[in-house]
Every structure is written in structure tokens, then in C-alpha cells.
């Protein structure tokens, strides 16, 4: 009985982890290339959710077409916001630029959230997608939509892996992520890749937001439902490891759900925080980071 229960919760956690994986990947990618924690991923997830909703519910596009919209709109908005808000701060480099950028990105997050509130109001919107009943395999229930979310996340992760290992831009980005100084010696200028990293990173956040919104609803604070778990996933993954971000998301997702067996559900978010603390205490570089971030 208990085993079945644990297995079910692990599956629930896996599903949640898949949802977290894409934004965590985006956050990690931006951190790797740009060198700062961009807190505006939460609002960009919401942007992705609204973009997908506008394309799906308002324009009547089919689900297969709305995901690219959820990717491109926050991607472009991410670049614009980066140029307008963050680039002027970056142009004056100093020892604290990364932290300054993090602070600006928090303000950016607030600005985007309220811009959405201004444009769309506080109402809840939903997709015209039917909610399907769970299918049960060997006593473990799982929803078709959740399976598709998992598949979407995996497909995108594989596509990204291919991009990073096969293309010139991808290789350059991975080199920067692994070691910016070394990459510079090889003649790769991290700043040049910044725009691309932001586009892909925010685009991933947007898809994550759209998938989240299909499960929940579209409102100005959709993205904030997941933000703490996303940070936890990135930290667990070591902040600079792309594989680590995906694995970190799955770990944080599963730990959070399984913990409910022994813990009151009201403290579920606290598991994310506890996981961060434990990882920092035991493996300060993250569970999956190959390269150190100590300085």
C-alpha cells in the first residue's frame, strides 16, 4: 500500500518536475552565458502563458501551433527588456554588476507582471482544451495532458542538447557556460551570445508558463506559482549545468511530492528551500555541476 502510494507521488513529482525543467533550463542558460540570476523568468512565463492563450483561445489556433508562439513572444520580449533595462547596467562593469543585474531583473519582473495586469486585467483565463481523465497503469494514475507535458519537455530538452552539441552557436554557448574565461581565450565573446541565450532562455520559460497555464489558469501571477521551485532546481543543478537544471527540476519535483507522506502539505514549498540548504551544505557546487562556481 505504502509502496503504491510512494510510486504514485513519485509520478506526480515527475510530472511537476517536467513542468519546472524548461524554465529552470532557461534560467540556467541565461546565468551561464550572462553571469547573473534573471528573476524576470517568472513574469516571462506568464507572458508565454498569455501569448499561448491569445493564440489558442482567442485566435483559435491548434495546440501544436501555440507552443512556438509561447516560445517566440517571451523570447523577443526578453531581448527587448534586456536591451532596455539590463544592458545599460551591464555597460558599466564592476565587481557587483551581477548582483545589480539581479536586482534590476526583480524590478523588471514586477514591471512585466503589472503591464500584463494593465493589459488583461485580473481575470482568470483558460484554454479551450478538454481536461482528460487519468489513465491507470499498474495502479499508478497519470493524465494524458501530463504525459504530453512530459513529452514536450523531453523533446525540447533533446532538441536543445542537439543544438548545444552539433551547432557552432550551441558549442560556443556551452563553452561559455563551462568556463567563460577559457572560452574567451578560444576567441568566443560571451557578450555576443547574450542575446541568443536570452531569447532561448526566456522562450523556454514561456513554454513552461504555457504548459503550467494549461494545468492551472492564465492570470497575471501564473508564473509566480513555480518560481521558488525553479530557483531550487537551478541551484540543485549547480546554476551553470544545463543537464543539472533538468535533473535538478526532477529531483525537487519528486522530493516535494513524496515529502507529503510525512509532512503537512502547507509546508510543501519549504521542501524546495530545505533542498537548497542541504545541497549547499553537502555539495556546494550543486549535485550535478562538473565545474566549480567557487571563487
Amino acid at each position: 500500500m505504502l509502496i503504491a502510494e510512494v510510486a504514485q507521488y513519485m509520478v506526480n513529482g515527475l510530472v511537476l518536475g517536467a513542468l519546472v525543467a524548461l524554465p529552470a533550463l532557461g534560467l540556467t542558460l541565461i546565468f551561464s552565458v550572462q553571469g547573473f540570476v534573471n528573476f524576470s523568468v517568472a513574469a516571462q512565463m506568464t507572458v508565454g502563458a498569455y501569448a499561448a492563450w491569445a493564440a489558442g483561445a482567442a485566435l483559435g489556433w491548434p495546440p501544436i501551433l501555440i507552443m512556438p508562439v509561447a516560445f517566440v513572444v517571451p523570447g523577443i520580449l526578453g531581448i527587448v527588456a534586456d536591451r532596455l533595462a539590463l544592458a545599460p547596467v551591464r555597460r558599466r562593469p564592476g565587481a557587483h554588476t551581477p548582483l545589480m543585474l539581479a536586482v534590476v531583473s526583480i524590478a523588471l519582473n514586477l514591471a512585466l507582471e503589472n503591464a500584463l495586469h494593465f493589459l488583461f486585467g485580473g481575470d482568470l483565463r483558460s484554454f479551450d482544451l478538454a481536461v482528460e481523465r487519468d489513465v491507470s497503469v499498474a495502479g499508478i494514475a497519470m493524465g494524458p495532458q501530463q504525459l504530453r507535458n512530459l513529452a514536450t519537455a523531453l523533446t525540447i530538452a533533446v532538441t536543445l542538447a542537439a543544438f548545444f552539441s552539433l551547432t557552432r552557436w550551441g558549442k560556443a554557448m556551452r563553452a561559455v557556460a563551462d568556463n567563460a574565461d577559457l572560452a574567451r581565450l578560444k576567441g568566443i565573446e560571451p557578450a555576443r551570445l547574450a542575446g541568443l541565450a536570452t531569447f532561448i532562455g526566456m522562450g523556454l520559460a514561456g513554454i513552461g508558463g504555457a504548459l503550467l497555464a494549461i494545468d492551472t489558469s492564465v492570470d497575471p501571477s501564473t508564473g509566480s506559482r513555480l518560481i521558488l521551485i525553479i530557483f531550487a532546481a537551478s541551484v540543485v543543478g549547480g546554476l551553470t549545468s544545463l543537464t543539472g537544471a533538468v535533473l535538478g527540476a526532477l529531483v525537487v519535483g519528486i522530493v516535494g511530492e513524496v515529502a507529503l507522506i510525512v509532512m503537512p502539505p502547507v509546508y510543501q514549498s519549504l521542501t524546495a528551500f530545505v533542498v537548497i540548504l542541504l545541497v549547499l551544505l553537502i555539495r556546494p557546487n550543486g549535485l550535478f555541476a562538473a565545474v566549480g562556481v567557487r571563487r
Binding site: D215, T216, E257, P265, S269
Partner: peptide, 17 residues
């Protein structure tokens, strides 16, 4: 009854319980 944490992305496990 079960008191959950607000603003979570999913309540599957709570519903299961």
C-alpha cells in the same frame, strides 16, 4: 480535511490523499 499551501502548480498529491 486537509489544509494545503496556496498557489501551488498542482494539487494532485493532495487530491490523491
Amino acid at each position: 480535511g486537509l489544509i494545503y499551501e496556496e498557489k501551488r502548480a498542482s494539487y494532485r498529491t493532495e487530491v490523491d490523499q
